[in-house]
């Protein structure tokens, strides 16, 4: 019954061309020899070389990575707890407010989140720096983690947990040895999501960072505002390359895991 009409084919082709051509052009022009990003003058990798000699960029990359690892780990713990509370917590006082606070940051304009967090940090006298960016990133990315994890929690069979409890597990043991292994893929993708959100954030980091803790997006933004530069193209290409590699390997791995499981199931049936 299902088949692609010419309309479907055209819209898929155009749609994906629209999504990918700008990024492909960006990568191609990072190998341009000339200083102008729009005129091709020959192949060269010199911009990559210059990038690795630019200490300001390297420092910013290090700060960004540090913030991303710490904040996504906190966000994963808090977000998983929040998801568990939302799905399994039953009714409790202030549940509506809680679910509001989980969903609102997903769509909240970043300028508002950034401004409000900055004003909080100043009100309590916390100096702006790596710590304040970590706190800010943990707060907004825990909500994303919680949405990812709760969608997995909703679909899983609750009787497994109940069986563990009946067999004498404490609720914590039941969570550790039954629930956690089942929701682990969602928890991992939640961590990855929080990690990339933190790597990518410009607006909130601009509000909450101090002069000593410039992150890579802040650095890129101030360079890009002045115009296009081949060095930024090289940096962008590296980042695109890492993401593409990561996403493609994880999806291939999960695909292989699925085929293996199916093969085992088939064997078991025979």
């Amino acid at each position: 019954m299902r088949r692609l009409s010419w309309f479907n084919t055209v819209s898929l082709t155009l749609g994906f061309a629209f999504l990918y051509i700008p990024m492909i052009i960006l990568v191609i022009y990072s190998f341009n020899a000339g200083k102008l990003v729009t005129v091709w003058t020959g192949f060269s990798t010199k911009w990559y070389g210059e990038l690795f000699q630019n200490e300001a960029f390297l420092n910013a990359a290090w700060v960004t990575l540090k913030v991303a690892v710490i904040s996504s780990t906190f966000a994963t713990v808090l977000g998983t707890m929040a998801a568990y509370v939302m799905v399994r917590g039953g009714r409790f006082y202030g549940r509506t407010l809680f679910s509001g606070m989980i969903y609102a940051p997903l769509v909240m304009p970043e300028v508002i989140t950034g401004l409000s967090l900055l004003l909080l940090f100043i009100a309590i006298g916390l100096d702006r720096g790596t710590l304040t960016i970590v706190l800010a990133h943990t707060t907004f990315s825990m909500c994303y983690v919680s949405v990812v994890v709760s969608s997995r929690l909703v679909t899983f069979d609750r009787s497994l947990e109940e069986a563990a409890l009946d067999l004498g597990c404490t609720p914590f043991d039941a969570f550790k040895s039954v629930t956690l292994p089942i929701i682990a893929p969602a928890v991992i993708s939640g961590w990855l999501l929080a990690f990339t959100l933190s790597l990518d954030d410009l607006v909130i980091a601009s509000f909450t960072s101090g002069p000593s803790s410039t992150t890579l997006p802040i650095k890129i933004f101030s360079a890009v505002r002045l115009g296009v530069s081949p060095e930024i193209n090289a940096l962008s290409s590296i980042m695109i390359g890492i993401v593409a590699f990561g996403v493609i390997t994880t999806s291939l791995m999960s695909k292989r895991a699925i085929t293996r499981r199916q093969a085992e199931e088939n064997k078991a049936v025979q």
């Binding site: 990024m23 410009l202 930024i232």
Partner: peptide
């Protein structure tokens, strides 16, 4: 992929 980079790609 970085939001900033995807916006930047359109500048050129």
């Amino acid at each position: 992929t970085s939001f900033l980079i995807r916006v930047y790609a359109w500048k050129a």
